[in-house]
Amino acid sequence: MFENVASIEGLFYFAGLVAVIASLKVVTGNNTVHALLYLVVSLLAVAVCFYLMGAPFAAGLEVIVYAGAILVLFVFAVLMFGLGADETKNAPKSKSLANMMGAMLLAAALLVEIVVIINNAEMQQSLQANVISSKAVGIMLYGPYLLAVEIASFLLLSGLLAGYHYAKPDATGGDL
């Protein structure tokens, strides 16, 4: 039993490590498509984490929606509109980590704070995580969270309309 638990925990840490490294590559990368690929890797690693945390449904959605749809949209946009090159006109010549120094310092400070706060709140008692079935999620979604679902649907609709409107070439669109 202990061995089993340890392996699940180990898997979690491994997936987490992968996610972090992939995310770092996303942030520091120069090639758009490579960065997108790393992002996919990161998402898949996070999906694994979800699965290990007892949320298989969320893991599935993560892969299907995030990796399978949203990022494909990214890739599609990159391919279709030639957004591949990092055309930052004002960017400094060297792309070393030193350029990100300020942001990284800020982030490091934030991280320290968060860790301290989490540690302080005595939240780290380990609870046994049982699998939460997708049925329970569905019941919650169409029960107490019905309003949120409706709002989300409106959000999607507005996202659809906005995306359609903005991406239209200027010539075809009249005054809105």
């Binding site: 996919v40 893991a59 890739v75």
Partner: peptide, 23 residues
């Protein structure tokens, strides 16, 4: 227990193969 979702996930990931090959 989420086998069907797994299938869908893999199917959606498969597209990267084609897209990335094209790119």
């Amino acid at each position: 227990n989420i086998g069907l979702l797994f299938f869908l996930a893999m199917a959606s990931l498969a597209v990267y193969s084609v897209v990335l090959a094209g790119w």
